[in-house]
């Protein structure tokens, strides 16, 4: 076969304009445009994420720097000016004169960080093990899936507590504060990998028998190459849906752990830590310390969940 001189070389690279055009014509975008719930929950999530990322710039007060606090400002009601610094506390302040509104920026940032990091951790672990189980089969599959079964028969929070406890035993007390974030990420991540592994394994079993995988085998491509390049991209759809819903769960899980006092220390407050410190004052009438962090937690979890629901429907070819 000689090279055909008349053939123009095919263009391989897509311009940004091409990509935008493709995206604007995709089913995902069209379904997004048609769903007010998806648009609203995306807007809410984005707003919260941006607020969290730029907490340092946007928050009126550097809420966790002791120098910035004025004890005279303590227990200011919402929309009241502090007695010490005379700044306006939109959502009130706590006993140390910390602005709840500002604390929310920092708390959300940490909650999101822990949520996202633990979901990525559980995704990597779950996808890897699920792929191996689905593609290899046999004893390895048995082992991985039985461990997943056992893990799924415990409540995730219990597993996270267990892992947290073990970590506490291993880490010297003076390093608790510096390692707390990592410990909680690993604890939550380890408690959620099984769902990913199950989903990926089920999809892998389907994809493995498809003819494009057989064609790749005929080319002598290694098992790892086939898993990474052929199977993985095709099982990502359902994984993304689970990951989104898991993100909401992970944020709630972190809040629960912190509320129980086994999560992040008060010096690194998450939404859960804020709720925990707020519940002390609920009965003495300072309701705002608890209410606002709890509200943000609910709104954030709800928005992400709705987004996950929409994504699941949008990716389901039967509902198109």
């Amino acid at each position: 076969m000689s090279h055909l001189a008349a053939t123009p070389p095919p263009r391989l690279k897509l311009t940004l304009k091409d990509r935008v055009a493709i995206w604007r014509d995709s089913d995902l975008w069209l379904s997004f445009k048609a769903s007010p719930v998806a648009i609203l929950s995306t807007a809410v999530t984005l707003l919260i994420v941006i607020a969290a990322i730029f907490a340092d710039v946007l928050a009126p007060q550097n809420a966790f720097d002791p120098v910035a606090l004025n004890l005279l400002d303590g227990f200011a009601h919402p929309m009241e000016r502090g007695m010490g610094s005379s700044m306006l506390f939109v959502m009130g302040s706590d006993e140390q004169g910390r602005d709840i509104f500002s604390a929310l920026f920092y708390g959300t940032r940490l909650s999101l960080l822990v949520g996202v990091a633990s979901v990525i951790f559980s995704m990597v672990l779950g996808i890897g093990l699920g792929l191996i189980a689905g593609y290899r089969g046999g004893k390895i599959e048995m082992l991985i899936m039985r461990v997943a079964d056992i893990q799924l028969s415990f409540p995730a929070i219990l597993i996270a507590l267990l892992i947290f406890g073990v970590a506490r035993g291993l880490i010297p007390p003076q390093q608790y504060e510096t390692t707390a974030v990592f410990v909680i990420i690993i604890a939550i991540g380890l408690s959620n990998w099984a769902q990913h592994a199950r989903t990926v394994r089920a999809s892998t079993l389907v994809e493995r028998n498809k003819e494009y995988v057989q064609a790749a085998r005929l080319m002598g491509i290694s098992g790892f190459g086939i898993m990474a390049r052929h199977v993985l991209p095709n099982v990502m759809g359902p994984v993304l849906v689970i990951a989104t819903i898991n993100l909401a769960l992970a944020i709630i899980e972190e809040a629960t752990l912190s509320f129980l006092g086994v999560g992040l220390p008060i010096t690194q407050p998450s939404l859960g830590t804020l709720i925990r410190s707020g519940q002390k004052y609920l009965l003495s009438g300072e309701w705002w310390i608890l209410l606002f962090p709890a509200m943000i937690l609910v709104i954030l979890a709800l928005a992400i969940n709705l987004l996950g629901d929409w994504l699941r429907d949008a990716l389901n070819p039967k509902l198109r």
């Binding site: 498809k210 003819e211 494009y212 057989q214 005929l218 991209p233 095709n234």
Partner: peptide, 15 residues
């Protein structure tokens, strides 16, 4: 030695 499969919808990686 290569193979052509029955289902052209499954024999090409959709991604």
């Amino acid at each position: 030695m290569q193979m052509i499969f029955q289902d052209p919808y499954a024999s090409l990686n959709p991604r």
